[in-house]
Design a protein around this nucleic acid. Structure first.
Lengths: 245, 245
DNA sequence: GCCTCGTGTGTACGGTTGTTCACATCTTGT
DNA sequence: ACAAGATGTGAACAACCGTACACACGAGGC
């Protein structure tokens, strides 16, 4: 009914529909000899590329100061230089995209942990090294971590839970490592887990500190590094003198 | 080229404007004999009432699971049962409203601190009592604290900084109280501040735990209470054995 | 060759949004 | 009583949004 409404069109008509024309900015790469019937060439991409571009576009916008909860489908597709309809080929809605991002977050965190394990060989430098590695990872995956910080108190229950789980997993891995390093051996498993959770939370909070400053502000950055290590040191001293009943 | 493609339509005009009619739901209290020239009676309110209603409406929506960054002016005014235009009489935009909320947050926090000071008289029950008071305040100002949790990683730099300041102020007040209670007297001022900041952060993180569960889930709630106290205990033990160089 | 899938594209509809304008109404100071 | 100012109201506009549909391609198996 409403689709072929041109020309005379006796129906509800007289509505000036200035073509929606989704603001395809300057990029318009119409391979000139391939246009037929007013349809441009389809861009060839490796499979899953558009999907990745959409995720990256969302992260870019987040990194630019926007909050994930306020992003719209059209906005993301515009940033990804893709037509809005394409979105639905890969995600059901924005929450779906968010959940996929959380999965990828797991990968980033695991990578960080691997690096920490490889570099922190003896206990005396443990904290300074770990904090430094953490800060570096945040710096080089700023958008990702911003998304994570937002999601912790975010809109979608599912995303929130996902991030929470990642943190919990991280904490239990940390407890494992401490066991292997023969540290805090006097703590019961439960208490060790508790201590590690506290450590992870403290570091996560520092995350918001890092994100709130400009990435180039080396001075503030070392201040945060120092503060975080002091926090951790205090927690470890507490754990050291803790008596598991 | 593609914009004015329709039938006759000489100008751009001829646009069917079906009245915007901002969805005034059922409330329509038109005092019947006062309608003149098609204009209804103006609701009489005490000064500043609409302003408060707008803030409360925003909090209500936040409490209902929405993220503050994704709220729109129309949405808030709809919830407040006020016409969209009224918004501009009180706030310039949503960020402005958010900042006002942060101010009010300060009031809530100060109230909490006052209650804690009045009830925590001797040091042995200090932590259990304080945590309990905190949890109660969160429960009875749930929306407010949800807003705060969201704002910590939020969209607006200003709101973020505001909340951060409130937390810092809270921490320094806490340090003051500890001095007065003759606790942790061996710490330098700087180190005591540090410890208090860590405490406040830990409690703030527990906030997100509380908010992520249903308000009636007593069981989970006591679990969180217990966990938080244990965190604090560990920090205090650490502070107790800390040596200010 | 053909047919089917997965994916990209153009167009469209109906709805909502932020903001402006002119006007109505209430409150307060004089 | 009346002017001034603060506050509430209704209508309007242009822009943007989510989503639906039909079509266009390329790659793969048969």
């Amino acid at each position: 009914m409403y689709t072929q409404g041109f020309g005379v069109s006796t129906g509800d008509l007289s509505r000036i529909t200035r073509f929606d024309s989704y603001d395809r900015s300057v990029h318009s790469r119409d391979h000139p000899e391939r246009v037929r019937k007013g349809m441009t060439t389809q861009k060839r991409r490796r499979p899953g590329e558009t999907r990745d571009m959409l995720m990256e576009a969302a992260l870019t916008l987040v990194g630019r100061g926007r909050h994930f909860a306020s992003l719209g489908i059209r906005e993301v597709t515009r940033q990804a230089e893709v037509v809005p309809t394409s979105f639905y080929r890969h995600f059901r809605n924005m929450d779906d995209l968010g959940l996929t991002l959380v999965d990828e977050l797991g990968v980033v965190l695991r990578g960080m942990m691997r690096e920490a394990r490889a570099n922190v060989l003896h206990a005396d430098k443990l904290m300074d090294e770990s904090v430094a590695i953490f800060v570096n990872h945040v710096q080089s995956n700023r958008n990702f971590f911003t998304f994570m910080a937002q999601g912790l108190a975010g809109e979608s229950q599912a995303i929130q839970q996902g991030i929470r789980n990642e943190m919990q997993f991280f904490a239990s891995e940390l407890a494992n490592d401490l066991r292997n390093l023969r540290l805090l051996t006097h703590l019961s498993d439960e208490d060790l887990d508790m201590a590690c959770e506290l450590v992870v939370r403290t570091v996560a909070f520092s995350l918001t500190d890092i994100l709130s400053i400009s990435p180039e502000d080396e001075e503030e950055l070392t201040r945060i590094r120092r503060q975080t290590t002091r926090f951790l040191r205090m927690i470890f001293i507490g754990a050291d003198h803790w008596q598991s009943s």
